[in-house]
């Protein structure tokens, strides 16, 4: 499994308005967001007054125990969830619905089973009304990048989980979104595949310059990938601490053995351990 990044291609996809932003500009502004789920049993506060900002080109990880509302928060940025209170703004505009400026990779690949690899990747550009030639160029470039040229005409169910997730990432990138939202995208993959996928993601990120918000419960994954890790509490989700990773880039799996990495890991672990214990007890109490 190899990803072959191609500089000319990533550039040739054409810039979105975000391209002109300076690296420090705030792209995502989550301010005082609370999300409440109503069910027959009553209301549950999933996210409790969360605020944070993500700058253009940044790689931010939301780290927290399961059920802490981190996916819900990501869904609010995507436009799938409406905040009960507060607001999510992308480039200054309030988010009200999902849109092609925010690509999303889900925990499951969620590829269209009736479409080939190429058609899955081409779906976004086709929907945006790109010409046939443009669509072909974008799809072929991305298929090349994720190293699935031989499988371009294959249907999703014939591919392994890791291959399907690569297609899913390519599909999300095909619209050249300014923001890529990733909801535990490697959670269902085996450990070896996950390491390779993480490395490839970092390479794609540096090629595309996309802003990434990445949800995970894996401490190592969060530190390895992110510029900043936002550690969340158990339900109701709040941001406990922001950890600036500050490890040099480009990063490779060897980083996991460095003392600086271990230190950060220890810091996160102490926070998460306590919260996981809480989350565990909450689940038992339910």
């Amino acid at each position: 499994m190899t990803l072959q990044p191609k500089n000319e291609f990533a550039g040739s996809l054409g810039g979105t308005p975000t391209e002109q932003l300076s690296a420090k500009a705030v792209e995502i502004d989550v301010s005082d967001v609370s999300i409440v789920f109503n069910s027959r049993k009553g209301s549950v506060v999933a996210v409790d007054r969360v605020s944070f900002q993500v700058r253009h080109g940044e790689f931010v990880c939301l780290l927290g125990p399961s059920g802490c509302g981190k996916s819900t928060l990501l869904n609010a940025i995507a436009g799938f969830e409406r905040p009960y209170d507060g607001e999510v703004r992308v480039l200054g505009k309030a988010v009200t619905a999902p849109g092609p400026d925010r690509g999303m990779v889900f925990q499951q690949p969620l590829l269209f089973p009736w479409k080939s690899v190429r058609s899955n990747i081409a779906h976004g550009p086709v929907m945006l009304g790109k010409s046939r030639a443009e669509v072909a160029k974008i799809a072929d470039g991305l298929i090349d990048m994720i190293g699935l040229t031989r499988f371009a005409d294959a249907y999703p169910h014939t591919l392994s989980g890791g291959m399907q997730q690569r297609v899913s990432i390519a599909r999300a990138l095909a619209n050249r979104p300014g923001i890529l939202l990733m909801d535990e995208p490697f959670g269902a993959l085996d450990a070896q595949t996950r390491i390779i996928m993480q490395e490839n993601l970092l390479r794609l990120w540096s090629e595309f310059g996309t802003t990434i918000v990445f949800v995970t419960h894996d401490i190592e994954e969060a530190i390895y990938l992110a510029d900043r890790v936002l550690v969340m509490s158990a339900s109701p989700g709040q941001i406990l601490r922001t950890i600036d990773v500050g490890l040099p880039r480009p990063r490779s799996p060897g980083l996991l053995l460095e003392p600086e990495f271990t230190l950060l890991k220890g810091e996160c672990f102490a926070l998460i351990k306590q919260q996981s214990q809480l989350a565990f007890e909450q689940m038992g109490a339910r």
Partner: peptide
């Protein structure tokens, strides 16, 4: 139909009719 598939389609800019 997997609601996730619908979300994926919406995220890619699929119009309601499609």
């Amino acid at each position: 139909v997997d609601r996730g598939l619908i979300r994926a389609a919406q995220m890619l800019g699929t119009p309601r009719r499609r």
